[in-house]
Structure formats: C-alpha cells, structure tokens
Design a protein around this nucleic acid. Structure first.
Lengths: 198, 198
DNA sequence: ACAATTGTTTGACAAAAGTCAAAAAAAATG
DNA sequence: CATTTTTTTTGACTTTTGTCAAACAATTGT
C-alpha cells in the first residue's frame, strides 16, 4: 500500500495501479474493478453539479476535468484540475453525502472508470482494505490542498504561475489560460503580462 | 454523531462535547477519557516540532496555539490557529506518522487533554466508533482548509482581514498582529494600514 | 520601575496587480 | 473557409500591496 497510487499519471491504468501499489490480490482486484463502469464524457459535460449530492467518483483514464463554482458576482472560479491517473471526487459532497458546493466538468473529451457511492460502500464490506485505500486518497487530497493553500499564502502571482507550469506541464498544454488564471487567483490580463515577461 | 463536536468552543469541555455530540455511552466516554492525559503548556512552548513525527494530538481546553514553519528565507509563516474546543493536530504527521513539516506552539499558556498515537490506536480497537469520530475530525479539517484556500484565492488583503475578524474575534483579541498578517499572507506594514482604514 | 526587547505604525517610495476597453489572435460553427 | 464567437493580448491608467527605515508603543525580564 503506497502513496504512488495517486500519482499514477498517464502511463498507468487503474488495474495496473492497484496491482503495483495496493496489496490487493488479483482476485480482489478483479472483484473490485467489476464495480467500476466505464464512462465517456464529451468536452464541457458535467460530472457533478453544484447543489447536488455527489453519488459517484471516477478514476480518470484520459482527458481533463476541473472543479469550479460561481462566486457572488457570477464569476467562474476554478478550484482544481483533474489529470489522467487521478481520482475525480468532490470530497465534501461524496464523503459526507452533502449537496456539492462546486461543479466538476470536463475540459476536453474524457474517459473515466466510475463507481457509485452505493457500490463503494459495498466494496468496503466485501474488501475492507478499500477503507485504507480511500483513507490514503483522502490524506493525499488533504496534503495537496495544504500545499496549494501555502502557495496562495506565500507566493506572488509570478511565482505561483512559474511553479504551476513546472509542476503541471500537461495542464498548461491543454487548458484555457483563463481557467489557470482563476485557479491561481490572478486576473487574466495580469497573467498575460506575466507570461510575456517570461 | 454530529459535526458540532468540532465547533464546541470555549463553553464546553471534551466530556460534555462527547456526550452531546457523539453517540458514545457514558461508560465508553469514561473509558475513552481515561486514555487522555491533561497537559499544561506555558506560552511559547512547542507541542510539536518541525522534523519530528507527531506522536500525540490534543483537545484544547483553554489557551491558544498556532502552527507555523520557516520558509527558505527564515520567515516564520503561520498556517493555523487553534482555539479552545478544537483538536490540536498536524494531520499529515499524525495520521501518516511522517516527520512534521510544521511546528505547533502555544501562543499563550494553554491547557490540553492529550492522547498518544499508541493510545489512539488502542481506542480504535476498544471503541470502534472512534474511527468515525476521527473521520469526522479529518473531514472537518479538510473543509476548513478548503474554505481558507478559496479565500486566499479570491479575496483581497482587506477582505481577508475583515472576514477573519468577523469569524475569529477571539484570535484577534489575543494574538500578535504579525502572526495574523502572516496567516493572511499580508505584509505586516500593509496590515497595519488596512486596520487604520477600517 | 527601568532597560531591553519585541511588536506596531508611519512615511516615502517602488513594484505588483487590477480595471476597462479595444485590438488581435485563436477556436468553433455553419 | 469564411464568419461568428471565444480567448488572449495590449495600452493607459488606478489601486493595492510590498519594501525599507525610522519612530513609536507595548511587553518582558530583572
């Protein structure tokens, strides 16, 4: 059982990831995977809508998604990007089964392996190790968020953008700049000027 | 079982909190509390040091603590304030038993109820409901951090400070401004000017 | 109580980031 | 492939925030 599971990246699929990084047996892996169903989404389709209780999470095979919400002025605020190999989840809504405060939407055509909340619970009963896997995902998400929070707290717009580029070359390539600007808390015009400077 | 548990605030102690907000029986509560030991700390004492694996968490009865780290220039960056009624924990270090990236230190004289990692594990075995309580604490911490992250992303220095004052009157009263400035990602001189403006 | 230390405010200035509007470029659509 | 539509860049300007140093205030230890 290993944190690498959630940095799988593009190369690996869910099955290979589980066999490399979890200590599930091949039989358990097959039993687990039978509860996931493939789902294809076109660009700009919702995976989760603000206000609804999240009833599923997904493992992203390929494509790109983002989570966002609308602030009091109707601005679209991006809060997260989801890359291949990552778990698509709204932690608060899925874990506590509360109405979501954010949308999750594809940026481009995407392919996921989806498991419903009901099946996830079933999985916990059948294969208790999955509780640990979930715990690891949650911890990983917490640590990511913590890093992000510290970056927003301590870095200038320029530094945030530079670090983001360094750590997320894939996102830079395939995501509209205005989403990245909003994610970094920078005005789109300012980001444009920062880019010119580099 | 109820989220109110982690917004107990000053009025309530751990015992009352557990009996009001958890569904532990009185016997279970007493059994649980026997694994917590009182700990008094003077001002500016460490509860946890950067680099060490956290071996305990605490419930704060009274006093005030903060977590912080030193950045590459040696600046002291405050990442969190802990108020009475809250759980003192470094999530990453305690949950995953990894070396801590942050310090936790009292700001003023404080009184805690402390439980060691070993005893926490014992508690999970004796009273499995504690796994759920922990899960709720973790979820609550995640949601708090998520809020904070969005505030850093979307609000101006002035707005961040105003919101902070509104939500944390106790902290404003008893914590040096430079800690608050650092927590909000604002230069101390800028914060001083913001305060004059209000 | 007094010196020493630590914390906060202020001034003068510089740099960073935001605003609004228009132009340019790129992407989507028929 | 030409035309909408969307996205990005740019210009001119304003506002916000940071920097450095000094003055001032508060707190602490002896």
């Amino acid at each position: 059982m290993n944190y690498g599971l959630f940095n799988l990246c593009i190369i690996m699929n869910l099955k290979d990831g589980l066999s490399h990084y979890s200590n599930l047996s091949p039989v358990e892996i097959d039993k687990s995977l039978s509860l996931f169903t493939p789902e294809k989404l076109r660009a700009k389709e919702y995976f989760l809508k603000q206000g609804k209780v999240s009833d599923k999470i997904g493992f992203l095979e390929f494509g790109m998604l983002r989570s966002f919400f609308y602030d009091e002025n109707g601005n679209d605020i991006t809060t997260h990007f989801f890359q291949p190999g990552q778990i698509i989840i709204s932690m608060r809504s899925f874990n506590a089964q509360l109405p979501s405060k954010e949308n999750i939407m594809t940026i481009e055509e995407s392919s996921l392996l989806v498991i419903t909340y009901k099946n996830m619970i079933a999985l916990y009963e059948k294969i208790p190790v999955w509780r640990e896997i979930t715990k690891m995902v949650d911890e990983h998400k917490f640590n990511q968020l913590n890093k992000r929070s510290i970056q927003l707290q301590t870095l200038s717009a320029l530094e945030r953008y530079q670090l983001f580029c360094e750590k997320n070359p894939l996102i830079i390539k395939s995501v509209p700049l205005r989403y990245i600007a909003s994610y970094l808390g920078i005005d789109i015009a300012t980001l444009s000027r920062i880019r010119k400077k580099i």
